[in-house]
């Protein structure tokens, strides 16, 4: 389990990183390496060049943009967990961060790295989908912004081209009345989740978004509580209806067996409980 021989570069600017991307077509971006490292060792990826972007100052910075928080792609999970990043989400980001894998992984793993890998069993994808996060991307052919939902194309598939870099995540500021909940089911502490439920609900405005993820399929987003609650009203989390949720998952095209559907529905239900708990 040793990687193939590759070159390693650690550029200090985004432009320098893009130049390297343009110069070597068989390159990989290293943004913490908590997934890429094992993949290299297993030779699942065999790049000619590894571009380490974690020392680019812009990518580790955080700024308040008024209606959103802009978090650099290479901000680590630990930085969020330790509240070194401001929180505009009523404590939600911090809670999600603190549950990612192990502390050692959180110390090196980054927000942008996780999203670019788009593993449906990873935390940020589901957690940020309900917050309607937007991604800032720059590349050899220009810059753009894309909402997270459109960024993810499938399990471990994204809209990112090999000539582009994810540079920041814009997380909209949560209303003070908004409630967010997150619950994951995994076999043991630190493992990838078998099922994830994430929810954002604002009893003030009625805004609702729930995500269910698990297995190897991309997360499913529900923009309305209609098919999930027996009374259609998330104000009473006990009215979350598991059989209805399982049906809704099936209708959304999830090809999973009963166990897999059940634990996803449980994760959704418990995320709702988490959101509404005092």
């Amino acid at each position: 389990m040793k990687p193939v021989a590759f070159e390693y570069e650690r550029p200090r600017t985004i432009d320098a990183a893009l130049d390297l991307l343009g110069a070597e077509s068989n390159s990989k971006i290293l943004a913490g390496g908590q997934t890429l490292g094992p993949m290299l060792n297993l030779r699942l990826v065999q790049p000619g060049l590894l571009i380490d972007i974690t020392r680019i100052p812009e990518l580790v910075s955080v700024s308040d943009e008024g209606d959103a928080l802009k978090i650099g792609a290479c901000v680590t999970h630990a930085a969020i967990e330790d509240a070194r990043v401001e929180d505009h989400s009523n404590g939600y980001l911090r809670r999600v961060a603190s549950g990612i894998a192990y502390r050692a992984v959180r110390t090196r793993g980054t927000l942008g790295g996780s999203l670019s890998h788009a593993d449906p069993a990873a935390d940020w994808l589901s957690a940020l989908l309900v917050l309607k996060a937007e991604l800032e991307i720059t590349g050899l052919d220009g810059s753009r912004r894309v909402v997270l939902k459109n960024f993810v194309r499938g399990a471990m598939e994204t809209d990112l081209s090999p000539r582009e870099l994810l540079i920041a995540v814009h997380v909209p500021r949560s209303e003070k009345t908004a409630r967010h909940g997150y619950y994951k089911i995994c076999r043991k502490t630190g493992e990838f989740a078998d099922a994830i439920g994430a929810v954002s609900f604002d009893p003030g405005s009625g805004a609702f978004c729930m995500v269910a993820a698990g297995g190897s399929e991309q997360p499913v987003t529900f923009e309305s509580p209609e098919n999930l609650f027996s009374q259609g009203d998330p104000l009473d989390p006990d009215s979350f209806d598991m059989p209805m949720a399982m049906d809704a998952l099936r209708e959304a095209g999830i090809e999973a067996d009963n166990y897999e559907l059940q634990i996803r529905a449980v994760a959704m239900s418990r995320a709702m409980q988490d959101a509404m708990s005092p």
């Binding site: 094992p38 297993l42 076999r187 502490t189 630190g190 493992e191």
Partner: peptide, 13 residues
């Protein structure tokens, strides 16, 4: 083929 598929109990288990 890896310890993410072959689960060993850890300190929390």
């Amino acid at each position: 083929s890896t310890l993410s598929d072959y689960l060993l109990p850890g300190p929390t288990e």
